[in-house]
């Protein structure tokens, strides 16, 4: 799979990998990475919520997805032990993570609480 070029103000969740996560964290001042896997049912519930949030908050928050099965380095770096897991980055630093699915309004509230 070709690696996605980091676009400016995307209105949909972009894909990041072990190879591109560093670049994405540095490029976007407010970045939320959804760590998911094909085997995880609850992760699939978060998918449409992130699509919607990415559209609503385009230009402010960048949403990204990372497949934990294909990116073991990121799993190790951030000690991921549970998915769905959202990693929240502000100005290049990890400021929090959110474990588990939740409704859209609650999720954006939690994301903003880290800002």
């Amino acid at each position: 799979m070709a690696e996605e070029i980091l676009v400016t103000n995307p209105d949909h969740p972009i894909t990041v990998t072990d190879g591109t996560i560093k670049e994405a964290v540095e490029a976007y001042p407010f970045l939320v990475i959804d760590c998911w896997a094909e085997w995880c049912g609850p992760c699939k519930m978060i998918g449409p919520i992130l699509e919607s949030l990415a559209k609503k908050h385009a230009g402010e928050i960048v949403f990204a997805k990372l497949d934990v099965e294909k990116n073991p380095q990121t799993v190790a770096t951030y000690s991921i032990r549970s998915i769905p897991n959202l990693l929240v980055f502000k100005n290049g630093n990890k400021v929090g993570d959110i474990v588990g699915a939740m409704p859209e309004e609650k999720l954006i509230e939690r994301i903003r609480s880290f800002a």
């Binding site: 896997a37 085997w39 032990r81």
Partner: peptide, 17 residues
């Protein structure tokens, strides 16, 4: 420690162990 080793979903989190 939920999400850091405590889990209620084996299919989600088992592969990390």
């Amino acid at each position: 420690l939920t999400g850091r080793g405590v889990s209620y979903c084996a299919t989600c989190d088992g592969p990390f162990f």
